[in-house]
Design a protein around this nucleic acid. Structure first.
Lengths: 205, 205
DNA sequence: AAAATAGTTGACTGGTCAGTCTATGCAGTT
DNA sequence: AACTGCATAGACTGACCAGTCAACTATTTT
Protein backbone atom coordinates (compact mmCIF):
# COMPACT_ATOMS: atom_id res chain seq x y z
CA UNK A 1 0.00 0.00 0.00
CA UNK A 2 1.13 3.53 -0.79
CA UNK A 3 1.64 6.20 1.80
CA UNK A 4 -1.00 6.77 4.40
CA UNK A 5 -2.29 10.16 5.38
CA UNK A 6 -3.96 11.58 8.45
CA UNK A 7 -5.47 14.41 6.42
CA UNK A 8 -9.00 13.06 6.56
CA UNK A 9 -8.84 13.09 10.36
CA UNK A 10 -7.32 16.54 10.39
CA UNK A 11 -10.05 17.89 8.14
CA UNK A 12 -12.77 16.44 10.36
CA UNK A 13 -11.16 17.82 13.50
CA UNK A 14 -10.73 21.25 11.96
CA UNK A 15 -14.31 21.26 10.75
CA UNK A 16 -15.64 20.20 14.14
CA UNK A 17 -13.66 22.89 15.94
CA UNK A 18 -14.76 25.68 13.63
CA UNK A 19 -18.38 24.60 13.39
CA UNK A 20 -18.69 24.20 17.13
CA UNK A 21 -17.09 27.53 17.88
CA UNK A 22 -18.90 29.48 15.17
CA UNK A 23 -21.65 27.72 13.24
CA UNK A 24 -22.14 25.55 10.21
CA UNK A 25 -23.12 28.45 7.97
CA UNK A 26 -20.28 30.68 9.11
CA UNK A 27 -17.64 28.03 8.52
CA UNK A 28 -16.23 28.01 5.01
CA UNK A 29 -14.45 25.18 3.25
CA UNK A 30 -11.47 27.50 2.82
CA UNK A 31 -11.29 28.11 6.56
CA UNK A 32 -11.46 24.39 7.30
CA UNK A 33 -8.66 23.73 4.80
CA UNK A 34 -6.51 26.45 6.26
CA UNK A 35 -6.83 25.14 9.79
CA UNK A 36 -6.19 21.56 8.68
CA UNK A 37 -3.22 22.62 6.58
CA UNK A 38 -4.86 21.21 3.48
CA UNK A 39 -5.51 22.52 0.00
CA UNK A 40 -8.86 22.56 -1.72
CA UNK A 41 -7.97 19.53 -3.81
CA UNK A 42 -7.32 17.38 -0.75
CA UNK A 43 -10.62 18.39 0.76
CA UNK A 44 -12.59 17.24 -2.24
CA UNK A 45 -10.46 14.14 -2.54
CA UNK A 46 -11.77 12.95 0.83
CA UNK A 47 -15.25 14.48 0.91
CA UNK A 48 -17.65 15.16 -1.85
CA UNK A 49 -19.26 18.21 -0.26
CA UNK A 50 -19.14 20.50 2.74
CA UNK A 51 -22.30 18.97 4.13
CA UNK A 52 -20.90 15.45 3.83
CA UNK A 53 -17.79 16.52 5.70
CA UNK A 54 -19.92 18.06 8.44
CA UNK A 55 -21.86 14.82 8.83
CA UNK A 56 -18.62 12.82 8.94
CA UNK A 57 -17.09 15.24 11.43
CA UNK A 58 -20.09 15.03 13.76
CA UNK A 59 -20.16 11.25 13.54
CA UNK A 60 -16.42 11.12 14.24
CA UNK A 61 -16.84 13.50 17.18
CA UNK A 62 -19.43 11.18 18.64
CA UNK A 63 -17.26 8.10 18.16
CA UNK A 64 -14.46 9.77 20.09
CA UNK A 65 -16.83 10.55 22.96
CA UNK A 66 -18.40 7.12 23.02
CA UNK A 67 -15.72 5.37 25.09
CA UNK A 68 -16.01 8.03 27.77
CA UNK A 69 -19.78 7.77 27.75
CA UNK A 70 -19.58 3.99 28.12
CA UNK A 71 -17.36 4.44 31.12
CA UNK A 72 -19.49 7.14 32.77
CA UNK A 73 -22.73 5.25 32.15
CA UNK A 74 -21.30 1.85 32.99
CA UNK A 75 -23.90 -0.48 34.53
CA UNK A 76 -21.42 -1.05 37.36
CA UNK A 77 -22.03 2.52 38.53
CA UNK A 78 -25.17 3.28 40.58
CA UNK A 79 -27.66 4.87 38.16
CA UNK A 80 -28.04 8.25 39.81
CA UNK A 81 -24.29 8.52 40.17
CA UNK A 82 -23.98 8.07 36.42
CA UNK A 83 -25.88 11.30 35.85
CA UNK A 84 -23.87 13.00 38.50
CA UNK A 85 -20.62 12.00 36.85
CA UNK A 86 -21.89 12.92 33.43
CA UNK A 87 -22.98 16.44 34.38
CA UNK A 88 -19.66 17.03 36.10
CA UNK A 89 -17.77 15.71 33.10
CA UNK A 90 -19.57 17.98 30.65
CA UNK A 91 -19.20 20.96 32.96
CA UNK A 92 -15.46 20.45 33.25
CA UNK A 93 -15.08 19.93 29.54
CA UNK A 94 -16.95 23.14 28.67
CA UNK A 95 -14.93 25.10 31.21
CA UNK A 96 -11.74 23.79 29.65
CA UNK A 97 -12.85 24.76 26.14
CA UNK A 98 -13.83 28.18 27.44
CA UNK A 99 -10.24 28.79 28.52
CA UNK A 100 -9.07 28.20 24.97
CA UNK A 101 -11.69 30.03 22.99
CA UNK A 102 -13.33 32.37 25.47
CA UNK A 103 -16.86 31.09 25.04
CA UNK A 104 -19.17 28.48 26.49
CA UNK A 105 -19.99 26.46 23.41
CA UNK A 106 -22.69 24.12 24.71
CA UNK A 107 -23.65 20.99 22.83
CA UNK A 108 -22.58 21.04 19.18
CA UNK A 109 -25.28 18.61 18.15
CA UNK A 110 -28.10 20.79 19.39
CA UNK A 111 -26.66 24.01 17.99
CA UNK A 112 -25.85 22.63 14.57
CA UNK A 113 -29.01 20.54 14.54
CA UNK A 114 -31.24 23.56 15.13
CA UNK A 115 -29.34 25.50 12.52
CA UNK A 116 -29.45 23.05 9.64
CA UNK A 117 -32.49 20.89 10.35
CA UNK A 118 -34.66 22.44 7.67
CA UNK A 119 -31.92 22.77 5.06
CA UNK A 120 -29.60 19.80 5.13
CA UNK A 121 -31.04 16.33 5.43
CA UNK A 122 -27.66 14.53 5.56
CA UNK A 123 -26.50 16.47 8.60
CA UNK A 124 -29.97 16.46 10.18
CA UNK A 125 -30.24 12.69 10.07
CA UNK A 126 -26.72 12.24 11.39
CA UNK A 127 -27.49 14.42 14.38
CA UNK A 128 -30.83 12.74 14.90
CA UNK A 129 -29.08 9.38 15.14
CA UNK A 130 -26.39 10.66 17.50
CA UNK A 131 -28.92 12.27 19.81
CA UNK A 132 -30.84 9.04 19.95
CA UNK A 133 -27.77 7.08 20.95
CA UNK A 134 -27.00 9.68 23.61
CA UNK A 135 -30.55 9.47 24.91
CA UNK A 136 -30.21 5.72 25.33
CA UNK A 137 -27.62 6.18 28.08
CA UNK A 138 -30.20 8.24 29.94
CA UNK A 139 -32.92 5.66 29.34
CA UNK A 140 -30.83 2.80 30.75
CA UNK A 141 -29.90 4.81 33.80
CA UNK A 142 -33.52 5.79 34.42
CA UNK A 143 -34.60 2.16 34.04
CA UNK A 144 -31.94 0.95 36.43
CA UNK A 145 -32.85 3.65 38.94
CA UNK A 146 -36.49 2.61 38.76
CA UNK A 147 -35.53 -1.06 39.20
CA UNK A 148 -33.57 -0.14 42.31
CA UNK A 149 -36.58 1.75 43.60
CA UNK A 150 -34.84 5.12 43.97
CA UNK A 151 -37.27 6.73 41.51
CA UNK A 152 -40.70 5.97 40.09
CA UNK A 153 -40.71 5.69 36.33
CA UNK A 154 -43.78 4.11 34.78
CA UNK A 155 -42.51 5.40 31.40
CA UNK A 156 -38.69 5.39 31.54
CA UNK A 157 -38.26 6.66 27.99
CA UNK A 158 -40.46 9.67 28.66
CA UNK A 159 -38.65 10.45 31.87
CA UNK A 160 -35.24 10.10 30.25
CA UNK A 161 -36.35 12.30 27.40
CA UNK A 162 -37.57 14.95 29.81
CA UNK A 163 -34.24 15.04 31.61
CA UNK A 164 -32.37 15.00 28.34
CA UNK A 165 -34.33 17.94 26.93
CA UNK A 166 -33.88 19.84 30.10
CA UNK A 167 -30.15 19.40 29.92
CA UNK A 168 -29.99 20.33 26.27
CA UNK A 169 -32.04 23.44 27.00
CA UNK A 170 -29.69 24.49 29.78
CA UNK A 171 -26.70 24.07 27.51
CA UNK A 172 -28.27 26.11 24.76
CA UNK A 173 -28.94 28.88 27.25
CA UNK A 174 -25.44 28.65 28.60
CA UNK A 175 -24.11 29.14 25.08
CA UNK A 176 -26.37 32.09 24.36
CA UNK A 177 -25.58 33.80 27.64
CA UNK A 178 -21.98 32.64 27.58
CA UNK A 179 -22.38 31.67 31.20
CA UNK A 180 -21.35 28.32 32.61
CA UNK A 181 -22.94 29.05 35.98
CA UNK A 182 -26.28 28.01 34.52
CA UNK A 183 -24.97 24.45 34.39
CA UNK A 184 -23.59 24.45 37.92
CA UNK A 185 -26.90 23.82 39.64
CA UNK A 186 -28.17 21.28 37.18
CA UNK A 187 -27.92 18.38 39.58
CA UNK A 188 -30.78 19.76 41.68
CA UNK A 189 -32.91 20.18 38.59
CA UNK A 190 -32.17 16.60 37.59
CA UNK A 191 -33.26 15.33 41.00
CA UNK A 192 -36.57 17.13 40.62
CA UNK A 193 -37.15 16.04 37.01
CA UNK A 194 -36.37 12.44 37.88
CA UNK A 195 -38.49 12.62 41.01
CA UNK A 196 -35.78 11.15 43.19
CA UNK A 197 -37.15 10.00 46.52
CA UNK A 198 -35.92 11.97 49.48
CA UNK A 199 -34.10 9.00 50.98
CA UNK A 200 -31.83 8.42 48.00
CA UNK A 201 -30.16 11.64 46.87
CA UNK A 202 -27.16 11.82 44.57
CA UNK A 203 -23.72 12.33 46.00
CA UNK A 204 -23.20 15.93 47.00
CA UNK A 205 -19.86 16.66 45.30
CA UNK B 1 -44.66 65.03 5.81
CA UNK B 2 -44.11 63.02 2.63
CA UNK B 3 -45.53 59.58 2.02
CA UNK B 4 -45.29 56.96 4.68
CA UNK B 5 -44.05 53.48 3.93
CA UNK B 6 -44.62 50.07 5.48
CA UNK B 7 -41.43 48.75 3.93
CA UNK B 8 -39.51 48.64 7.20
CA UNK B 9 -42.19 46.37 8.66
CA UNK B 10 -42.25 44.23 5.56
CA UNK B 11 -38.50 43.79 5.64
CA UNK B 12 -38.57 42.75 9.28
CA UNK B 13 -41.39 40.30 8.70
CA UNK B 14 -39.68 38.79 5.67
CA UNK B 15 -36.41 38.49 7.58
CA UNK B 16 -38.10 36.85 10.54
CA UNK B 17 -39.91 34.34 8.34
CA UNK B 18 -36.81 33.33 6.42
CA UNK B 19 -34.49 33.24 9.41
CA UNK B 20 -36.93 31.19 11.45
CA UNK B 21 -37.58 28.73 8.66
CA UNK B 22 -33.95 28.38 7.58
CA UNK B 23 -31.28 30.06 9.68
CA UNK B 24 -29.51 33.37 10.02
CA UNK B 25 -26.52 32.27 7.98
CA UNK B 26 -28.58 30.74 5.22
CA UNK B 27 -30.72 33.84 4.79
CA UNK B 28 -29.30 36.38 2.36
CA UNK B 29 -30.13 40.05 2.12
CA UNK B 30 -31.19 39.46 -1.47
CA UNK B 31 -33.67 36.80 -0.38
CA UNK B 32 -35.12 39.08 2.28
CA UNK B 33 -35.51 41.88 -0.25
CA UNK B 34 -37.19 39.60 -2.75
CA UNK B 35 -39.73 38.35 -0.23
CA UNK B 36 -40.45 41.85 1.02
CA UNK B 37 -40.72 43.21 -2.53
CA UNK B 38 -37.92 45.65 -1.86
CA UNK B 39 -34.75 46.60 -3.67
CA UNK B 40 -31.31 46.69 -2.14
CA UNK B 41 -31.42 50.46 -1.85
CA UNK B 42 -34.50 50.35 0.36
CA UNK B 43 -32.97 47.71 2.59
CA UNK B 44 -29.92 49.81 3.33
CA UNK B 45 -32.03 52.91 3.67
CA UNK B 46 -33.77 51.38 6.69
CA UNK B 47 -31.04 49.18 8.14
CA UNK B 48 -27.33 49.64 8.16
CA UNK B 49 -26.45 45.95 8.10
CA UNK B 50 -27.93 42.48 7.90
CA UNK B 51 -27.16 41.88 11.54
CA UNK B 52 -28.92 45.08 12.60
CA UNK B 53 -31.98 44.05 10.65
CA UNK B 54 -31.95 40.65 12.32
CA UNK B 55 -31.82 42.27 15.75
CA UNK B 56 -34.67 44.62 14.83
CA UNK B 57 -36.72 41.76 13.38
CA UNK B 58 -36.30 39.65 16.52
CA UNK B 59 -37.19 42.58 18.75
CA UNK B 60 -40.23 43.32 16.61
CA UNK B 61 -41.27 39.68 16.70
CA UNK B 62 -41.17 39.76 20.47
CA UNK B 63 -43.18 42.97 20.66
CA UNK B 64 -45.91 41.37 18.57
CA UNK B 65 -46.03 38.37 20.91
CA UNK B 66 -45.99 40.44 24.06
CA UNK B 67 -49.70 41.25 24.19
CA UNK B 68 -50.57 37.57 23.88
CA UNK B 69 -48.06 36.70 26.59
CA UNK B 70 -49.54 39.35 28.90
CA UNK B 71 -52.95 37.85 28.39
CA UNK B 72 -51.84 34.23 28.89
CA UNK B 73 -49.78 35.07 31.95
CA UNK B 74 -52.29 37.50 33.40
CA UNK B 75 -52.22 37.56 37.21
CA UNK B 76 -55.98 36.99 37.08
CA UNK B 77 -55.34 33.46 35.83
CA UNK B 78 -54.40 30.75 38.37
CA UNK B 79 -50.61 30.33 38.08
CA UNK B 80 -50.50 26.69 36.97
CA UNK B 81 -53.20 27.35 34.42
CA UNK B 82 -51.00 30.04 32.92
CA UNK B 83 -48.40 27.44 32.02
CA UNK B 84 -51.08 25.15 30.73
CA UNK B 85 -52.46 27.82 28.44
CA UNK B 86 -49.00 28.83 27.29
CA UNK B 87 -47.91 25.33 26.31
CA UNK B 88 -51.16 24.80 24.44
CA UNK B 89 -50.77 28.12 22.69
CA UNK B 90 -47.26 27.40 21.50
CA UNK B 91 -48.21 23.91 20.43
CA UNK B 92 -51.10 25.17 18.33
CA UNK B 93 -48.99 27.91 16.81
CA UNK B 94 -46.21 25.51 15.79
CA UNK B 95 -48.73 23.09 14.31
CA UNK B 96 -50.22 25.93 12.29
CA UNK B 97 -46.83 27.02 10.98
CA UNK B 98 -46.04 23.41 10.12
CA UNK B 99 -49.03 23.31 7.77
CA UNK B 100 -47.62 26.25 5.83
CA UNK B 101 -43.96 25.36 5.68
CA UNK B 102 -43.84 21.64 6.42
CA UNK B 103 -41.53 21.82 9.40
CA UNK B 104 -41.69 22.22 13.14
CA UNK B 105 -39.64 25.35 13.62
CA UNK B 106 -39.35 25.51 17.41
CA UNK B 107 -38.32 28.72 19.15
CA UNK B 108 -36.58 31.20 16.85
CA UNK B 109 -34.74 32.86 19.72
CA UNK B 110 -33.03 29.66 20.82
CA UNK B 111 -32.15 28.53 17.31
CA UNK B 112 -30.78 31.85 16.14
CA UNK B 113 -29.21 32.51 19.53
CA UNK B 114 -27.22 29.27 19.46
CA UNK B 115 -26.20 29.95 15.90
CA UNK B 116 -24.88 33.47 16.23
CA UNK B 117 -23.91 33.79 19.89
CA UNK B 118 -20.18 33.65 19.28
CA UNK B 119 -20.19 35.74 16.12
CA UNK B 120 -22.66 38.57 16.41
CA UNK B 121 -22.89 40.58 19.60
CA UNK B 122 -25.78 42.80 18.47
CA UNK B 123 -28.06 39.84 17.78
CA UNK B 124 -26.78 37.91 20.80
CA UNK B 125 -27.59 40.70 23.21
CA UNK B 126 -31.01 41.25 21.69
CA UNK B 127 -31.89 37.61 22.14
CA UNK B 128 -30.46 37.58 25.63
CA UNK B 129 -32.77 40.43 26.59
CA UNK B 130 -35.81 38.84 24.99
CA UNK B 131 -35.20 35.51 26.71
CA UNK B 132 -34.91 37.27 30.01
CA UNK B 133 -38.25 39.01 29.54
CA UNK B 134 -39.82 35.70 28.57
CA UNK B 135 -38.35 34.06 31.64
CA UNK B 136 -39.95 36.68 33.85
CA UNK B 137 -43.43 35.44 32.99
CA UNK B 138 -42.34 32.04 34.27
CA UNK B 139 -40.83 33.53 37.41
CA UNK B 140 -44.02 35.40 38.33
CA UNK B 141 -46.15 32.34 37.78
CA UNK B 142 -43.83 30.20 39.89
CA UNK B 143 -43.88 32.81 42.65
CA UNK B 144 -47.64 33.04 42.59
CA UNK B 145 -47.97 29.27 42.64
CA UNK B 146 -45.66 29.10 45.65
CA UNK B 147 -47.65 31.83 47.41
CA UNK B 148 -50.82 29.85 46.85
CA UNK B 149 -49.12 26.79 48.27
CA UNK B 150 -49.59 24.57 45.22
CA UNK B 151 -45.81 24.14 44.83
CA UNK B 152 -42.75 24.55 47.02
CA UNK B 153 -40.27 27.05 45.60
CA UNK B 154 -37.60 28.27 47.98
CA UNK B 155 -35.81 29.71 44.92
CA UNK B 156 -38.50 30.74 42.41
CA UNK B 157 -36.01 32.07 39.85
CA UNK B 158 -34.11 28.79 39.79
CA UNK B 159 -37.30 26.80 39.45
CA UNK B 160 -38.62 29.02 36.69
CA UNK B 161 -35.32 28.79 34.89
CA UNK B 162 -35.35 25.00 35.14
CA UNK B 163 -38.80 24.80 33.60
CA UNK B 164 -37.86 27.35 30.97
CA UNK B 165 -34.74 25.45 29.94
CA UNK B 166 -36.64 22.25 29.83
CA UNK B 167 -39.19 23.74 27.50
CA UNK B 168 -36.56 25.30 25.28
CA UNK B 169 -34.76 21.97 25.09
CA UNK B 170 -37.93 20.18 24.04
CA UNK B 171 -38.56 22.74 21.33
CA UNK B 172 -35.03 22.42 20.00
CA UNK B 173 -35.46 18.67 19.82
CA UNK B 174 -38.84 19.02 18.17
CA UNK B 175 -37.20 21.15 15.48
CA UNK B 176 -34.32 18.77 14.92
CA UNK B 177 -36.59 15.72 14.74
CA UNK B 178 -39.33 17.66 12.99
CA UNK B 179 -41.78 16.08 15.39
CA UNK B 180 -44.39 18.00 17.30
CA UNK B 181 -45.36 14.97 19.36
CA UNK B 182 -42.41 15.68 21.62
CA UNK B 183 -44.25 18.78 22.83
CA UNK B 184 -47.57 17.03 23.39
CA UNK B 185 -46.67 15.53 26.72
CA UNK B 186 -44.88 18.54 28.09
CA UNK B 187 -47.51 19.32 30.67
CA UNK B 188 -46.59 16.20 32.67
CA UNK B 189 -42.93 17.15 32.54
CA UNK B 190 -43.79 20.63 33.77
CA UNK B 191 -45.71 19.19 36.71
CA UNK B 192 -42.70 17.15 37.71
CA UNK B 193 -40.18 19.96 37.23
CA UNK B 194 -42.33 22.35 39.25
CA UNK B 195 -42.94 19.70 41.90
CA UNK B 196 -46.70 20.27 41.88
CA UNK B 197 -48.32 18.75 44.91
CA UNK B 198 -50.59 15.82 44.15
CA UNK B 199 -53.70 17.65 45.34
CA UNK B 200 -53.38 20.52 42.89
CA UNK B 201 -52.78 19.30 39.33
CA UNK B 202 -53.22 21.42 36.23
CA UNK B 203 -56.38 21.10 34.21
CA UNK B 204 -56.36 17.96 32.12
CA UNK B 205 -57.34 19.35 28.71
C1' DA C 1 12.53 -0.01 -12.89
C1' DA C 2 7.89 0.07 -14.23
C1' DA C 3 3.27 0.12 -12.87
C1' DA C 4 -0.23 0.95 -9.74
C1' DT C 5 -2.23 3.07 -5.87
C1' DA C 6 -2.98 6.91 -2.67
C1' DG C 7 -2.62 11.49 -1.84
C1' DT C 8 -1.44 16.57 -3.02
C1' DT C 9 -1.36 20.89 -5.47
C1' DG C 10 -3.24 25.36 -6.66
C1' DA C 11 -5.09 27.84 -10.34
C1' DC C 12 -9.64 28.36 -12.06
C1' DT C 13 -14.86 28.87 -12.63
C1' DG C 14 -19.15 30.87 -12.08
C1' DG C 15 -22.17 32.20 -8.86
C1' DT C 16 -23.51 34.64 -4.65
C1' DC C 17 -22.46 37.52 -0.84
C1' DA C 18 -22.96 42.06 1.91
C1' DG C 19 -22.74 46.52 1.12
C1' DT C 20 -22.25 51.24 -1.87
C1' DC C 21 -23.62 54.86 -4.78
C1' DT C 22 -25.98 58.04 -7.72
C1' DA C 23 -30.08 59.10 -9.78
C1' DT C 24 -34.91 59.35 -9.38
C1' DG C 25 -39.89 59.48 -7.69
C1' DC C 26 -43.30 61.08 -4.68
C1' DA C 27 -45.89 63.84 -1.35
C1' DG C 28 -46.65 67.72 1.60
C1' DT C 29 -44.79 72.78 2.58
C1' DT C 30 -43.82 77.57 1.25
C1' DA D 1 -43.53 76.12 -9.11
C1' DA D 2 -39.74 75.48 -6.31
C1' DC D 3 -38.23 73.33 -2.00
C1' DT D 4 -37.69 69.61 1.33
C1' DG D 5 -37.62 65.14 3.53
C1' DC D 6 -38.74 60.42 2.75
C1' DA D 7 -38.37 56.48 0.01
C1' DT D 8 -37.15 53.74 -4.09
C1' DA D 9 -34.46 52.11 -7.99
C1' DG D 10 -31.00 49.15 -9.66
C1' DA D 11 -26.44 48.94 -11.50
C1' DC D 12 -22.04 48.15 -9.50
C1' DT D 13 -17.96 46.53 -6.53
C1' DG D 14 -14.84 43.41 -4.68
C1' DA D 15 -14.62 39.79 -1.60
C1' DC D 16 -15.77 35.21 -0.84
C1' DC D 17 -18.31 31.05 -1.74
C1' DA D 18 -18.48 25.82 -2.95
C1' DG D 19 -16.81 22.99 -6.07
C1' DT D 20 -13.67 21.36 -10.45
C1' DC D 21 -9.73 19.77 -12.74
C1' DA D 22 -5.50 18.28 -14.77
C1' DA D 23 -0.88 17.90 -13.45
C1' DC D 24 2.09 16.23 -9.97
C1' DT D 25 4.40 13.50 -6.01
C1' DA D 26 5.26 9.85 -2.98
C1' DT D 27 5.03 5.06 -1.65
C1' DT D 28 4.36 0.11 -2.41
C1' DT D 29 3.82 -3.99 -5.50
C1' DT D 30 5.35 -6.72 -9.33
Amino acid sequence: MPRVSDMKERLMDAAMDLIWENSYGATSVDAICERAGAKKGSFYYFFKSKSELAAAALEDCWNKKKAEMDSIFSPTVPPLERFDRYFNFVHDRLAEVQKKCGSILGCPFISVGSEVSTQDQIVRETIDRIMDRKLNYFVSAVRDAAAEGVIDAPDPVAKARALFSCYQGMMAQARIQNDIELLRGFKEVAIEVLGVKRTSAMSSS
